[in-house]
Nucleic acid binder design. Sequence first.
DNA 1: GGTATAAATTGGAATCTTCCAAATGCAGAT
DNA 2: ATCTGCATTTGGAAGATTCCAATTTATACC
Lengths: 338, 338
Amino acid sequence: MGKRPTILDVAHHAGVSKSTVSLVLQRSPLVKAQTAELVRKSMADLGYVYNRAAAQLRSGGVGLIGMVINDLRNPFFTEFAISVQMALSARGYATIVSNSDEDADLQAQVTGSMIEHGVSGLIMSPAYGDATGALFDRIARGGLPCLQMLRQVDQRTDLFPFASFDYSAGGRAATRALLASGARNIAFVGGVEGREITQERLSGYLSEMRSAGRAPFVLYGRASRAFGRDAAKVLAREHPEIDAAICFNDLVALGVHSGCAEIGRRVGADFQLIGFDDIEESAQVYPQLSSVSCDIESFGSYTAYLMAEWLEKGNKPAPEYRAPVRLVTRSSSGGPDR
Amino acid sequence: MGKRPTILDVAHHAGVSKSTVSLVLQRSPLVKAQTAELVRKSMADLGYVYNRAAAQLRSGGVGLIGMVINDLRNPFFTEFAISVQMALSARGYATIVSNSDEDADLQAQVTGSMIEHGVSGLIMSPAYGDATGALFDRIARGGLPCLQMLRQVDQRTDLFPFASFDYSAGGRAATRALLASGARNIAFVGGVEGREITQERLSGYLSEMRSAGRAPFVLYGRASRAFGRDAAKVLAREHPEIDAAICFNDLVALGVHSGCAEIGRRVGADFQLIGFDDIEESAQVYPQLSSVSCDIESFGSYTAYLMAEWLEKGNKPAPEYRAPVRLVTRSSSGGPDR
DNA sequence: GGTATAAATTGGAATCTTCCAAATGCAGAT
DNA sequence: ATCTGCATTTGGAAGATTCCAATTTATACC
């Protein structure tokens, strides 16, 4: 196979100038419909493929958005990434997605690569760690639009707007629901101590427990199924008086769920359970898992919208936004089919 | 912010020529270590960022790989995509990942966009559908290296090498294991009828059932949790004699798992169960789920290896490769903690 | 010190598209 | 027939890098 055809070849084949072909490529209304059709036919005949590199070189950034996610294995983030990508794609942007695996160095590396590839905007659900400061400095210096989604790592929200869910309200709602359905001693399970996001989910629980005059009990840990499973056993053995738990996320809750099954504790009856995120699986396990639902899909489209507005109209998003959450009550916490 | 510095600015600042800077950029051993250091310092001082578009324009892109996946929501594919991406990243490639959502048109669109962005290779787990023929023709015409992983949609494996797991052997192993641990009537649950992949997983089951003189029973359906859940109920109601199932994948098996819990059937004791894929969750539910393990992680690195060899040395992979699978026996099928 | 060889550096051409200002074609009006 | 205004079309320059061939500088040997 010889070399790829260029717009010059197309122009020659169609009997017009390269400028006209270029105009056709960008759907300019300046060219006569008839001519445009002719050019398009030539492109098809020659098997022309647009060379974005050349275009980008001449006219700066073109519709490529980078997205860096801390943990793509977690279905919550997967769902987020996919919905952002689909929404951006519908708006004509291509997207590069990368998993940083909660590793600040890897994050710096992949983000750097994205910048080199000429992304015109960055959407991050950042990892925590030392290398992040330098990374955000670098982004700031490049003047690249960058959104912090779901996690706030850099404090300069004027530069890097932050959007997430109203987790604190979710924690309150979950706690109130458990108290209302008869739970006496509620634990909070999972989440790494000291992190912003743990703090938020926890704070709603704590404030609600306080005003109900109940003693809180917190069991910090990784946000994984495995931790949840262990936690269920530890709780049953060492704190049998605890009869309900709010989990840092659904992964932990599902771990507790299967841990309970393992030791013969009946979820929903002996032990009430509420998770966070409302991933698909939560409605599919038995007994079904209650969860603070985040409607990650519309959050994803909203993210795409924010980025598009910023890029196209220069409207920088508000420094901080909290999307509402909704408690979905299922059988694990006194729901309908309990 | 003014305009970005170019290698010319760096060259001037460091007192060398642009060519030297270019050489430093590509870590050429031709330039003296001392000079290189000097240049690097200038780059840091000026905040220089590499312009890949220009490089790509001049030297025909290298180092961007496109990956199109039919269903990124399925953890099996997520895991695959992530491990390919990580392995490629370690080899110095950047990766664009896209979800085609099993939609052939969307697949054609995102793939087209990747080609425009100048990917030098394509890794696909393709969607089925009409538009795929045209898409593969287009790729073939462009002479772009393209791997079909996990699914074979185009028959020209000389052009588009195909690699997957030895599912047929997995089906045989699962069936034999169930028969050995006392199952009388084994069903095959899930998978869309007529598809290559369903056929493969099914064929091992069928051949083993035949040689054991047992009547097979197949229940086709979508590869989702929801279908598995329904299937568990249907099976219990309409075919109570069936006491074991091999599921098309773990998602279906997990659906059956929770369906059984719902109707009070004890998985492992009353009803044995084996899935396919061995996703992380399978070891975390209770009772733990047996599964035909596919070691998707090393398959992912192998994929990256294949692509790198093809790109760098021109070694086109064998037209077809089957990675071995391994049956992991857990409590859902007479495993240790049954 | 002078020459042969190796190492390090350099200027110019090439890559493909978009942008800009200018040119062309055409209709109707002078 | 010339001019004006408008819709289309066009040639040349620019953009940042890499590649190539050529040049300069350093090293080694007699």
